[in-house]
């Protein structure tokens, strides 16, 4: 009889400690989450009317570099192009999909070259040399005349998502 009561006390103590432990772990996990102010990093609007062909512009969105490249007429068309009027643009998050370095644009070769581990992308952001595993990521965008709003999902972006050209950033 005595033993049973002790067992009960042991289990009750263990259960209370376990509940408290799980709660503390959850609180610890939540404390490491990105803060609401960080997550609410808004939208970035980029005016594309001043862009020059084959000159890379680097903008900033959610702390990440954004590549904006107006294509020249002789660059091949690509399903990843963003078309505004008669102009074709390559717009992507400027971080190598291998481990997140910023590739440099070689205007002469129409190529992005990552200095960290040697990955390469063409002017449309397609990976052409390992260790780059996948094309540069296209950020969510919405077209607004000659302007583009990053962070909002317009119909053109949704179509790219549906076609598997864009992936969730």
């Amino acid at each position: 009889m005595e033993k049973k009561r002790r067992d009960f006390m042991g289990m009750a103590l263990g259960a209370c400690a376990a509940v408290g432990g799980v709660g503390a772990l959850y609180a610890a996990k939540r404390s490491w989450d990105p803060l609401p102010s960080v997550k609410a990093a808004g939208f970035t609007t980029i005016d594309l009317s001043a862009a020059k062909p084959n000159v890379l512009n680097v903008e900033k969105w959610r702390g990440k570099p954004i590549f904006v490249l107006k294509k020249t007429a002789d660059m091949p068309e690509d399903k990843r192009d963003i078309i505004i009027g008669s102009d074709r643009f390559h717009i992507s998050i400027g971080l190598c999909t291998h481990l997140g370095c910023i590739p440099a644009y070689k205007a002469g070769e129409h190529k992005f070259l990552c200095a960290c581990h040697g990955g390469e992308f063409d002017a449309s952001g397609n990976d052409v040399k390992a260790p780059a595993p996948s094309p540069l990521v296209i950020p969510p965008f919405k077209l607004d005349g000659m302007k583009i709003v990053l962070g909002e999902e317009g119909p053109e972006y949704k179509k790219m998502l549906a076609d598997g050209i864009a992936v969730i950033a």
């Binding site: 291998h98 481990l99 370095c101 910023i102 590739p103 200095a115 581990h117 390992a130 260790p131 595993p133």
Partner: peptide, 25 residues
């Protein structure tokens, strides 16, 4: 917004870094 031209770790991590680098991701 600017990656250094060449990134490498301190010397004591180089051997494991070189095992990561030459393969696909």
């Amino acid at each position: 917004l600017k990656t250094p031209a060449h990134i490498y770790p301190e010397w004591y991590f180089l051997w494991s870094y070189e095992i990561l680098r030459p393969f696909s991701k």
